[in-house]
Amino acid sequence: MSDTFTDRRFDVARLAIPDWLLKVEGLGKVYGPFDDAVINSTGPGPETAKSPLNGSIVAAWDVSFEVAPGEALGIVGESGSGKTTVLRCLAGDVTPSTGAATIRLGGNDLNIFAVDAAERRRLRVDTVSVVYQDPSEGLKMNVTAGGNIAEPLTAAGWRNFAKIRMRACDLLSRTEVPLNRMDDLVRAFSGGMRQRVQIAKALANSPSVVLFDEPTTGLDASVAAGVLDLIRSLLEENRIAAVVVSHDFSVIEMLTSRCLVMHHGRIVESALTDQLLEDPHHSYTQRLVAAARS
């Protein structure tokens, strides 16, 4: 058959797929000394993240991906697979051993692993937010809901008390926290409500990137469902580049369109989320999917 299509091939650049906003290249985190031999002694092949050569732990290695604005990328894997390490490196909680993470801001590319500590803190205030599994990591428990949200706002330069309060009201109503709870200490909130306050705080300065680390793990099923629905609608309404880390395929399926699978610190497979669920290729992904479907 003649090749009728080569001269009529569509230029996919015309699809207007948004360019990446977050690009991670060769991210690695090793606890302990390492060289090539140490790295090569770990991973899915040897089935360990801990090197038999010197005991160093290769928590994540050679992790690369891109996320576009308006897109949510999933990272799935069991505990110890390295997915949270990746997220914490991006959040600035953990210093990576190698690699780059570039954020494209108004045409400027900035490697967030290469900036100084002050700049890093500023980025956390207005550009890269995190929603942790444990709300006590993202919130001050002895501060009111309104006070917690005011913190990133004042850090970003907001000074007018009335405006800060209005913004906090707006954020809390978007995350469906009753406004009459605004002046209560977060400590007095239920788990699901704390998570909603944490999400409101994460959105305070309209960040470009939001990182979700097991955002519903540990919540009762019905409460988790409410928080998931909230995250889903926020992702649909905002042009955020999101990374969602979870061991739970139902969370990944609901929130993400593309997904990476991590195992022993490495990416073993990446695909569209429906492909991973219906046609997993890697043996580890097949095991994960089989476990989720049983």
Partner: peptide
């Protein structure tokens, strides 16, 4: 115009 669905990136 035509695309080969087997030769595209995931996002495409």
């Amino acid at each position: 115009d035509y695309v080969d669905m087997c030769a595209l990136s995931d996002i495409e």
